[in-house]
Design a protein around this nucleic acid. Structure first.
Lengths: 162, 162
DNA sequence: GAATAGTTGACAAGATTAGTAAGTTAAGTG
DNA sequence: CACTTAACTTACTAATCTTGTCAACTATTC
């Protein structure tokens, strides 16, 4: 899981789509103006988003892009994965054979696990939740206490989104 | 909040430090060998980690780096922030004045909030937790049933896909 | 059927980051 | 003091991100 400005641009653009969903197909030129992202970059990003099946396109006048499914069914992780092809990294390939020292592959596993958690976290936040549940979220976050925090973080991530 | 390979390297190296804490100061050369990260790059990363107050250094023979405080007191977010100076981004500066359209700055706010959540999430995971809870994790992981899944996943952090 | 508004794809240049190489300084050791 | 070790620093190269430009291709509209 990586999280770069590229992913941020993609999520931003998708949020824009989600917000303006009711207006029919949205042109990249509109998104470009609203979000301050260069048109050519948007074209590249949406090429990947389209290949990832996250958006549908319509050409010609009145054309543009729209979400391929409900905003509630598109996770933030989906968007980021689509544009940010995450080449796996740990030299040992994740879990295979690098036991030169006691702590070698253990470290990689630790990272692997953490990475999985981040991914899971972002998988449980949908664009729809971000747009709709804004106020509820912050409240839910404030309420939990320290010891529930493990569970709460996940639950919050899942239903309250942001 | 950004999450790049750079941050991953830093966390990996810090985990290595945490694991080998009892061995006294650890040289970058050791970390380099164990984790497969180039020495030069480690030097650059640790320069920032040191400036960020996360590690203490000792020069000369027998020298090396060690965590400046308990592994339980160092959050993953601390490490990533230290090496990955996250320049803020949204053209409007985060929350200021870009209301050209209804959804313009709202989108930025949404991203800002999401970013904050990711940060909070990573702030609540310490290096110590990652290292210590691991053996418990794998066991607990196997034992849990579907409904305990949320809690276990965080404590454990195991499988979870990517 | 031509004009227009829009996507799609390719390519390249500039800007920023990631990563490497090599040299310098400080601290121990014989 | 000379030598070694290892932290520090600076300069450089490679990769990636981001923007720009140009040329198709497609559906709508006049």
């Amino acid at each position: 899981m990586r999280l770069t400005t590229k992913g941020r641009y993609a999520v931003t653009a998708m949020l824009d789509l989600a917000i303006h969903y009711k207006d029919g197909p949205i042109t990249l030129s509109d998104i470009s103006k609203r979000q301050g992202i260069s048109l050519s970059y948007l074209e590249q990003l949406f090429s990947k988003l389209r290949k990832g099946g996250l958006v549908d396109s319509a050409r010609g006048p009145g054309g543009g892009y729209r979400l391929s499914r409900s905003a509630g069914d598109i996770a933030v992780a989906d968007v980021i994965s689509a544009v940010d092809e995450s080449i796996d990294v740990t030299r040992c390939g994740g879990l295979s054979n690098c036991h030169g020292d006691g702590g070698t592959c253990l470290t990689h596993e630790l990272w692997h696990d953490l990475s999985g958690q981040i991914f899971k976290f972002l998988s449980e936040i949908s664009l729809g939740q971000l747009v709709e549940n804004r106020s509820i979220q912050t409240v839910a976050f404030r309420q939990r206490d320290k010891f529930e925090h493990a569970e709460a973080a996940l639950v919050v991530g899942s239903d309250a989104g942001l």
